[in-house]
């Protein structure tokens, strides 16, 4: 995955943050669209500039940053897990291709989420120097696929749990878009394992 693509994704994400405001403005019939957007953004930075004033708006921004950073932490772990799988020598070429592709998606999630943290005035979480993976239990391709499927399943639940607690709804929308991707990974991995790819109508 080229870093250029990643940057494009990240800016698409920032774009999404602005989109709902635009839609709102359009509905409200605002003709001085860009000027108003600029004003709103200025309002947004004022809110962020009060970062140390202890206001409640500021407390919710800080909470959003914490939620984002925990999600980023989990995404970093997924990238490292796919790296382990890719380097295991246990994957046949076609499966390896898919694993590397999914890893690329997780990297793009990190870029997008990190861009949001920066925009909110925070510092994005970095990858850990070391992850504890059940390496000794990975002996064949099926083990690697089951391991990856578990991580993707967990990621789906993590985003289901994060979406309702963001103060900023644009972040919820962005998290929902990531959730959809991780759910697809999970379904594809289940399919590769010979399991029913989509066993239920609802997931918590």
């Amino acid at each position: 995955m080229s870093s250029q693509t990643n940057q494009k994704q990240a800016s698409l994400f920032t774009e999404t943050l602005l989109q709902s405001r635009r839609n709102f403005l359009r509905k409200a019939g605002a003709s001085t669209f860009s000027a108003t957007t600029v004003a709103l953004l200025a309002g947004c930075s004022t809110k962020l500039a009060m970062a140390d004033s202890g206001s409640s708006a500021n407390a919710s921004v800080k909470q959003d940053i914490r939620i984002l950073n925990t999600a980023i932490g989990a995404e970093h772990e997924a990238v490292a897990a796919y790296q382990l799988g890719a380097e295991s020598g246990l994957l046949v070429p076609d499966v390896l291709k898919v694993a590397v592709k999914f890893q690329g998606h997780h990297k793009e999630h990190i870029d997008a989420l990190s861009a949001a943290v920066t925009k909110l005035g925070g510092h994005a979480a970095a990858a850990k120097p070391k992850y504890n993976f059940p390496v000794s239990k990975l002996k064949k391709q099926k083990d690697v696929l089951e391991f990856a499927a578990g991580l993707e399943r967990g990621a789906v639940s993590a985003y289901v749990g994060a979406i309702p607690v963001f103060d900023n709804r644009d972040l919820s929308a962005a998290a929902a878009s990531i959730l959809a991707d991780e759910a697809m990974h999970w379904a594809v991995l289940r399919n590769a394992l010979g399991l029913d790819p989509v066993p239920e109508a609802f997931y918590s």
Binding site: G73, N132, S157, A158
Partner: peptide
């Protein structure tokens, strides 16, 4: 507990 395994395990510190 499957809802927790994106971040937790019993044996190891993760997210």
């Amino acid at each position: 507990y499957n809802r927790c395994i994106g971040c937790h395990s019993f044996a190891d510190n993760r997210t």
